[in-house]
Design a protein around this nucleic acid. Structure first.
Length: 876
RNA sequence: GCCGGGAUGGCGGAAUUGGUAGACGCGCUAGACUUAGGAUCUAGUAUCGUAAGAUGUGCAGGUUCGAGUCCUGUUCCCGGCACCA
C-alpha cells in the first residue's frame, strides 16, 4: 500500500517529500512516507492515547469509589468481547467497537457515568486448536494473542476503562464462573413459581439425594450427543453446524454428559423477549430456535403397552390411520411381531449408521417398515398399524406420532408410498383439495367434533381426552437441554468431585479450581476427557475423584458483562452495590449491546438463561441482561465477498491505521453505511474520509512554504457574523447529537462534512463555533479533534468537555424555497419569505412564467398549499 | 418449503407525518495553481435530448392533487430454520 518514495513528492500538503537530491531540512513534524497524509496523525494519535491512559480520562467510578457521583445517570454500553484469535483484530471488530465508542463518549459528554469496558473471551476450542498447531501451551498463545488485541484496540483510541479489563481465563474470573455453575448446580426449577430455587429447600422437605439429582438445573445424563473425533469433544446442538462447516466430522454417540436444564426456561425465554429492545429478526430467531408448539399428548394402546404421541392437531384424531415410532423408540423391540423382527432390526441398523444430519438431508424420500403390531385409536377404537420410520425422531415430542395422512404433508407422502389409508376429517374452507390439506377447516367424519372449526375442535378433543384420562394438553419445545461438558483442556474444570458414584459440589473455598499443567493436551480420539490424564490432580487422597470434563467457551461469556461492573471484587462475583447501580429501571441491565448476528441463538440465549437463574436466586435485580441489542452488519471484502484468507480479500486494520490513521479508520467504518447493514469495504472510501479529516485540519492550519504549519488567520475569536455559517454550525450540532442517539453515524458524518465545507469557504471562521464543531467531531475522530483544539490553545480536553447545545434561533431561515407544482409536477422553485401565506404564495406562483405556460387553456380545479413547502395547482 | 430482511445513479449510500428523489462520500469530466500532479482548490456529473422537455427508486397494477414512502400481486438477492408431528 505504501507508495514508491522515488516518485515525485508532494508540494501541496503540509508534509512533503524533498525532491530527489535535495537534503532534508528540519521540520516541525516527522516526514510522512506518503504524500497522502496531510496531517501528522502518526505523531499525535499515540500521544493522545498515552495521555488518556496516563490521566485515566476514561476511568469509570463505581459506587465504592471516592469520586463516585450518585447523582449522575448511568449508561452501560457494551461490546461483544472478542475471542483473541491468533489472526488479531479484523475490520469487523472496530465497526461495532467504534459505534459503541461514539455512543459512550457522547453519553459521557452529556453528563452520564458511562461504563464502556473491554475484555477477552479467551477460553475455548479455537485457542486450543491454535495452541496445538503452534506447539505452544494455550496459556502462552492466549496471553500473546491478548497482548496483540490489546495493542490493536488501544491503537484505535477507544475510550475503554482499561482498569476493568477482564479475560475469562483469569483465575479470579474462573473462580466466579465456577461459583455461578455451583449456583445452577444447587438449584432446581420450581414449577409453581416458575423460578429457580435452591435444592436445599428440597432437602429440608426430606427429598433424597437421588430425587434431588433428578431435578438439579445442572445434571448428568446419558444421551445421544454430538461427538467430534478429530476435535476430541462433544458439541452443543447449536455449535454443530459451525464446526462441520470448518471441515470437522461430527457423529451421534450416546455419552454421559453434564447438561443444563435450559428447557425449563423455554417459556420465559420466549415471553420476556417482548420486554427487550432487540431487532425483530433476532427475537424471531430465538423464538424459532426455542420452537414452541401447542398441542396434546394422546395415549394409544399397543398390545398392552401405552404409547404416548404428541400432536398439534388433536382435532384430526379420527383421521389417524396408522402410527409411527422413531426407529430408536424403546418400545419397538417389545411390540415387533416375529414376522417383522428381521426387517425391523435391519431398518434400525441402517438408520443408526447415518447421522441425524444425513437423515435431514434425505427428507425427500420416505422410508419405513411395519412392526406388525397394531395400536388402538382411543377415540374410535380403530385398529391401526404401527410402523417405524426415520421421519419420526426420538429427540422431539415422545418419539411417536399418530399419522393423519389426509392433513399432514409428511404422513401423506408416507401413506402414498406405502399405500396406507387416507381418511378425510377436515373440510377445507376454500376450494382446495381435501387430500394433504393442512390448514384449518371444519371437522367432518369425526363424531362429536363434526361441524366444529379446527380451533374449537382441538379444544373439545383435548377436553374429551382429559376427562377420559386418555391424554392432555401439552406444550412442546424444540429447544433441548444445554449440553454443557467438553472433553478438552482449555476450559474451566467443573467444580465437582465424585465419591461413591455420586457427584458433589466442591466447597466455595476451593475455588478457583484450575486445570493442572499438562504437556500433552492433544485430543486422543476417544471420548475420555483430556484431564483424565492428570492422575495426581484427578485422584484425591480420600479416594474421591475429580470431574474431568471442562466447561464450554460459552460459560465465560455468559456473565462477563456482570463482572465488568465490579472486576476486582474478591468476595462476590459482583457486589450488590455495583449490581444495583449499573442496573436499569428496565428489564435488561445493559443499556446497549452491540455485536454480530452470529450469536443470535448461542451466546444471547445462554446468557439470558444464566442471568435468569441468578435473578431467580436473588443475586441480580433484573430479569434480563441486555435491554437494547444492535447487530452490526458484516463488512465484506472489496470484491463484495465475505472476507477470507483463501479469497485474499482480508483488510487488516493495522495496515489501515498506519496508512491513514485511527481516526480515518473509525470514521470510514461509520461512514460506510448504516451500522446494521452488510456492506463492502472500499479503500477509496477510506481515502475520502481521510481527505475530510485533512480539510478539517486545514481549516485550522495553513501550510508554510518551508513545510511547517501555522494557525490559520481565518480562525478569529469573534462573534459569528455570517448567519448562514452559524445556521450550518447549529444544524450540525443538532443533527450530530440526534443521529448519534439514533445510531445513524453515516448521516452524522455527512453533516459534519457539510459543515467543514462551509468553514472552508468562509472568509472568517469564528473560533467559538469551530470549537463547538470539534467537540461534536470528537467522539468520531477523537485524536484529530483533541489535537486541533489543543493547538488552538484549548487547555481542557474535548473528551472531558460537555456536549454543545444548539441554538434554535440560529436554525431559522428567513427565506425558503417554495416548490410550485402543476398537477403534481415540479414547474418552478421560488425564493419566498418563510412565513408566506396561501394568498402570497398564489400571487408568486401565478407570476411565474414557467407556471403559467403549463396552465394555458386549462381550468384551475384545486389548489393545495403546504406552508413552507409546496404550492400545487390542479388544472385540466 | 417456512420465517425474517432487502432491491434507489458507474459505486457506498441520503430522503420527518406521503410533499423538490439522488444529501454526503467515491469515481468520472473540465478548469485553476504548477517544471510536474496521483496533492490542493473551483465548477459539473441520474438517464435520453443541442434545447425546451420527457423519463426515472426490482417488476405489474391500485389509492392520492402528489408515492422511494401506503395497498394488492409478483420477481430476484441475503440471512436463519428445515421430516419439530
Amino acid at each position: 500500500m505504501a507508495k514508491n518514495p522515488a516518485q515525485p513528492p508532494c508540494c501541496g500538503g503540509v508534509f512533503l517529500f524533498n525532491p530527489p537530491g535535495i537534503p532534508h531540512s528540519p521540520r516541525p513534524f516527522p516526514i510522512m512516507s506518503d504524500a497522502r497524509k496531510p496531517f501528522p496523525f502518526r505523531e499525535f494519535e499515540p500521544q493522545w492515547q498515552q495521555r488518556w491512559e496516563s490521566e485515566k480520562t476514561f476511568r469509570t467510578p463505581g459506587p465504592c469509589d471516592a469520586d463516585f457521583d450518585p447523582a449522575k445517570p448511568k449508561y452501560y454500553v457494551l461490546d461483544m468481547f472478542p475471542y483473541p484469535s491468533g489472526a488479531g483484530l479484523h475490520v469487523g471488530h472496530p465497526e461495532g467497537y467504534t459505534a459503541t465508542d461514539i455512543i459512550g463518549r457522547y453519553k459521557r459528554m452529556t453528563g452520564h457515568n458511562v461504563l464502556h469496558p473491554m475484555g477477552y473471551d479467551s477460553f475455548g476450542l479455537p485457542a486450543e486448536q491454535y495452541a496445538i498447531k503452534t506447539g505452544q501451551h494455550p496459556a502462552i498463545t492466549t496471553a500473546a494473542n491478548i497482548e496483540t488485541f490489546r495493542r490493536q484496540l488501544k491503537s484505535l483510541g477507544f475510550a475503554y476503562d482499561w482498569a476493568r479489563e477482564i479475560a475469562t481465563t483469569d483465575p479470579e474470573y474462573v473462580r466466579w464462573t465456577q461459583w455461578i455453575f455451583l449456583q445452577i448446580y444447587n438449584s432446581y426449577f420450581c414449577e409453581e413459581t416458575n423460578k429457580a430455587k435452591p435444592v436445599s429447600e428440597l432437602e429440608a422437605k426430606g427429598w433424597t439425594l437421588d430425587q434431588i439429582d433428578d431435578v438439579r438445573l445442572a445434571f448428568v445424563a446419558d444421551t445421544p450427543v454430538w461427538w467430534s473425533p478429530d476435535l476430541g469433544t462433544v458439541l452443543a446442538n447449536e455449535e454443530v453446524e459451525e464446526w462441520k462447516s470448518k471441515g470437522h466430522t461430527v457423529e451421534r454417540r450416546p455419552l454421559r454428559q453434564w447438561m443444563l436444564r435450559i428447557t425449563k426456561y423455554a417459556q420465559r425465554l420466549i415471553d420476556e423477549l417482548d420486554t427487550l429492545d432487540w431487532p425483530d429478526g433476532i427475537k424471531m430467531l430465538q423464538k424459532n430456535w426455542i420452537g414452541r408448539s401447542e398441542g396434546a399428548e394422546v395415549d394409544f394402546d399397543v398390545q398392552g403397552h401405552t404409547v404416548t404421541v404428541f400432536t398439534t392437531r388433536p382435532d384430526t384424531l379420527f383421521g389417524a390411520t396408522y402410527m409411527v415410532l422413531a426407529p430408536e423408540h424403546p418400545l419397538v423391540a417389545k411390540i415387533t411381531s416375529a414376522e417383522q423382527k428381521t426387517a425391523v432390526e435391519a431398518y434400525q441398523k441402517s438408520i443408526s449408521s447415518k447421522s441425524d444430519m444425513d437423515r435431514g438431508d434425505l427428507n425427500k424420500d420416505k422410508s419405513g417398515v411395519p412392526t406388525g403390531a397394531f395400536a388402538i385409536n382411543p377415540v374410535n377404537n380403530a385398529k391401526i398399524p404401527v410402523w417405524i420410520a426415520d421421519y419420526v425422531m426420538m429427540g422431539y415430542g415422545t418419539g411417536a406420532i399418530m399419522a393423519v395422512p389426509a392433513h399432514d404433508e409428511r404422513d401423506f407422502e408416507f401413506a402414498q408410498k406405502f399405500d396406507l389409508p387416507i381418511l378425510q376429517v377436515v373440510q377445507p374452507t376454500n376450494d382446495a383439495d381435501w387430500q394433504n390439506y393442512t390448514d384449518p377447516g371444519i371437522a367432518i367424519n369425526s363424531g362429536f367434533l363434526d361441524g366444529l372449526p379446527t380451533v374449537e375442535a382441538k379444544a373439545k378433543m383435548i377436553d374429551w381426552l382429559d376427562s377420559n384420562n386418555l391424554g392432555k394438553r401439552r406444550i412442546q419445545y424444540k429447544l433441548r437441554d444445554w449440553l454443557f461438558s467438553r472433553q478438552r483442556y482449555w476450559g474451566e474444570p467443573f467444580p465437582i468431585i465424585w465419591k461413591d458414584g455420586r457427584h458433589h459440589a466442591l466447597a466455595e473455598s476451593e475455588l478457583p479450581l484450575l486445570a493442572p499443567p499438562l504437556d500433552d493436551y492433544k485430543p486422543s480420539g476417544s471420548p475420555e476427557p483430556i484431564l483424565t490424564k492428570a492422575t495426581e490432580w484427578v485422584n484425591l487422597p480420600d479416594g474421591s475423584i475429580r470431574e474431568t470434563n471442562t466447561m464450554p467457551q460459552w460459560a465465560g461469556s455468559c456473565w462477563y458483562y456482570l463482572r465488568y461492573c465490579d472486576p476486582g471484587n474478591t468476595k462476590r462475583f459482583i457486589s450488590t452495590e455495583a449490581e444495583s447501580y449499573w442496573t436499569s429501571d428496565k428489564p435488561g441491565m445493559v443499556d446497549l449491546y452491540v455485536g454480530g448476528t452470529e450469536h443470535a441463538v448461542l451466546h444471547l440465549l445462554y446468557a439470558r438463561f444464566w442471568h435468569k437463574v441468578l435473578f431467580d436466586l436473588g443475586h441480580l435485580t433484573t430479569p434480563e441482561p441486555f435491554q437494547k441489542l444492535v447487530n452490526q452488519g458484516l463488512i465484506l471484502g472489496e470484491d463484495g465477498q465475505k472476507m477470507s484468507k483463501s479469497r485474499g480479500n482480508v483488510v487488516n486494520p493495522d495496515d489501515v491505521v498506519s496508512e491513514y490513521g485511527a481516526d480515518a479508520l473509525r470514521l470510514y467504518e461509520m461512514f460506510m453505511g448504516p451500522l446494521e447493514q452488510v456492506k463492502p469495504w472500499q479503500m477509496k472510501g477510506v481515502e475520502g474520509v481521510s481527505r475530510f479529516l485533512a480539510r478539517v485540519w486545514r481549516v485550522a492550519f495553513d501550510e508554510q512554504p518551508d513545510g511547517s504549519c501555522q494557525n490559520s488567520p481565518k480562525i478569529q475569536d469573534v462573534p459569528c457574523a455570517d448567519k448562514e455559517l452559524l445556521r450550518v454550525v447549529h444544524e450540525t450540532l443538532k443533527k450530530v447529537g440526534e443521529d448519534i442517539e439514533k445510531l445513524s453515524f453515516n448521516t452524522a458524518i455527512s453533516q459534519m462534512m457539510i459543515c467543514t465545507n462551509a468553514f472552508t469557504q468562509a472568509e472568517v471562521v469564528p473560533k467559538k463555533e469551530f470549537i463547538q464543531f470539534l467537540t461534536v467531531l470528537n467522539p468520531f475522530a477523537p485524536h484529530l479533534a483533541e489535537e486541533i483544539h489543543a493547538r488552538l490553545g484549548g487547555n481542557a480536553m474535548l473528551s472531558e468537555s460537555t456536549w454543545p447545545t444548539y441554538d434554535p434561533a440560529a436554525l431559522v431561515r428567513t427565506q425558503i424555497e417554495l416548490v410550485v407544482q402543476v398537477n403534481g409536477k415540479l414547474r418552478d422553485r421560488l425564493m419566498v419569505s418563510k412565513d408566506i401565506d396561501e394568498e402570497g404564495a398564489k400571487a408568486a406562483a401565478f407570476a411565474s412564467s414557467k407556471v403559467s405556460e403549463h396552465l394555458d387553456g386549462k381550468t384551475i380545479r384545486k389548489i393545495i398549499f403546504v406552508p413552507g413547502k409546496i404550492f400545487n395547482i390542479v388544472a385540466n
